[in-house]
Write a protein that binds this DNA or RNA. Structure first.
Lengths: 91, 91
DNA sequence: AATTCATATGAACGATCATTTATATGAGTG
DNA sequence: CACTCATATAAATGATCGTTCATATGAATT
């Protein structure tokens, strides 16, 4: 998984998580609810994102809060999304 | 495969192909040799890239030349690479 | 039209991935 | 200390992906 950024970004749920915590940090439950994903699945994806260095975590009491470590990733995602949309419309 | 750009970019050989034909258009054999990939594997990846809209093809005699359709993709790849490197060094 | 060169395609297979289920860890609370 | 809340992890499974091998297509050449 940790080979390259783009492998980590290839999964739509991981991209959604990045968008979701891009605005403000959130705990695992919030992310799960926000994206309607099972808690354990969210945890798995958070692990991948964390090992890739894309997100940071911080414990506050029982909860663990995650946030994007490099805000630039959101810009890259946006650029990719724009390009993707443009390519689709072409066909 | 055609769901989203990032799924197409997740494979390292496809990314290499994009870099390879980013500078100037090349035929399949040239791409194969350039990246040391089997011809059929190259063709498979070219098909994926083509269906994603990332590349264009043009026949000249026996050969088929491929080029990047949206040069912006190279910039996005570069940005991703820079970010990926930065994230790795952090650890 | 048969042959050759360039590329594409299809089937097969192992490898990796995404998801679910069940369970473990670990911090706070009564 | 027992309990519960929040999160993590491990095992299992089906799905998808990357690659290889064999073969097909299609254009040029003889």
């Amino acid at each position: 998984m940790n080979d390259h950024l783009y492998e980590c970004l290839s999964n739509v749920n991981r991209r959604k998580i990045l968008y979701c915590i891009g605005e403000e940090e959130k705990c695992v439950n919030e992310i799960s609810e926000c994206l309607d994903l099972e808690q354990s699945l969210t945890s798995h994806h958070l692990k991948d994102l964390y090992e890739c260095g894309l997100i940071e975590k911080k414990r506050k009491g029982k909860r663990i809060y995650y946030k994007v470590s490099e805000p630039e990733i959101i810009e890259i995602l946006e650029k990719g999304k724009e390009l993707g949309d443009r390519l689709e419309k072409r066909c």
